[in-house]
Simulated scan of single mutants.
Amino acid sequence: MIETYYIGAYWGARKEDAQACARRIATLVQLLQPVDLLFASWFKGAKSLKQSLTRPLELEFSSLQEYVQRNLMRDDRRQPMEDLGFSISLWNGQQGGNHAFLRIACGGYWEQVSNSCVLIAPDEGPGAERVLTTDFQVQALRALATAWDPDWEVAMSHAHRDIIEKKCPDVLVGWITYLSRRLGRVPPLPAPVRIESVGDKGSLIILTPERFTASNPEHVALAERVRELLDRAGLLRKPAPAQ
């Protein structure tokens, strides 16, 4: 069975209007473009991928802001729910196993809301060998961290998430994990773990230079050891909502 992967950035309640969210989306798209040809262009979500191809994402700011505003969350009566923010879906428009998607929930400020940006890139097909490398994952995580300033991020497989989810109720530790400085300072970690800073925003924790797989007991044991050390340092708890 093929082990499937995803990259997710997560942050708590943060009140941001359509203008602020549009600015962050534009930054993300621009930062992802040099990472890989998979991210050369994006299309707005639609009822079908064929329909989506007729709706290219425009980075002209007023158009992008208008698009974000149209995606404000609404209730069953189509009444706006501003405290839940905006929900946006983007597709890279590529076929033949080169699909990539962005699922974005941003601008929500209800105290129980969870904002996020999830990147799904190919697990098989022509683009997979490039995607499933540490270098690609690190670059993508850096782009998300810079654009969204999340509390935490993770690049991991769904199989590994299924193993550890009950142990990590707030913050997951995967192949590569990003922790904002708001969560605290990352302690020394055992080899071969590598720590890289992301400007003044936070740190990337890279467990293995090769692809991390949940079927490798050594990988899973290393992840658990790192999780224990980070938890002991108090870094795996979501920060309190901003006042």
Rank of each mutant, 00 (worst) to 15 (best):
I7A: 10
A147C: 04
V220N: 03
L179M: 08
R23G: 14
S87Y: 11
G96I: 00
I2M: 05
D162R: 15
L90V: 03
D231P: 00
S197W: 07
Q33F: 05
A140E: 02
E16V: 02
L53T: 07
D170I: 09
A155Q: 00
E196S: 10
R237K: 15
N216L: 05
L57C: 08
D151Y: 10
R130G: 02
F101N: 08
L57V: 15
E196L: 10
D231Y: 00
I176R: 06
Q79R: 15
M1W: 10
Q243R: 12
W175A: 12
R55Y: 09
E224I: 05
S215K: 09
V68W: 02
L38Q: 03
R24C: 08
E82Y: 10
G97V: 07
I104G: 00
G45I: 05
T27P: 01
Q30D: 15
G127Q: 01
D135L: 03
Y67D: 14
N98I: 04
P126F: 06
N98V: 01
F86E: 01
E218N: 04
D200Q: 13
T146I: 12
E124R: 11
N216D: 15
L119I: 12
P239R: 11
E58T: 13
L236D: 01
R194K: 14
R225K: 08
L28N: 03
R14K: 15
D76I: 05
K15R: 15
T133V: 09
K44P: 02
A26R: 15
A128N: 01
K44W: 13
Q51I: 01
S114D: 05
F101K: 13
L183P: 06
S48M: 08
F212C: 05
V138Y: 04
L57W: 00
K201D: 08
R182V: 13
R130N: 13
L90E: 05
A223P: 05
Y67S: 06
N92L: 06
A20T: 14
C168L: 15
N71M: 06
W91N: 06
A145S: 15
W175D: 05
P241S: 03
T134K: 11
A240P: 02
R77H: 12
P56E: 12
S215W: 09
L222R: 02
G174N: 09
L235E: 00
E196W: 02
Y6V: 03
A233L: 13
P187C: 08
L144F: 05
N115F: 04
G174K: 03
L53R: 08
K167F: 09
I195C: 12
L49T: 07
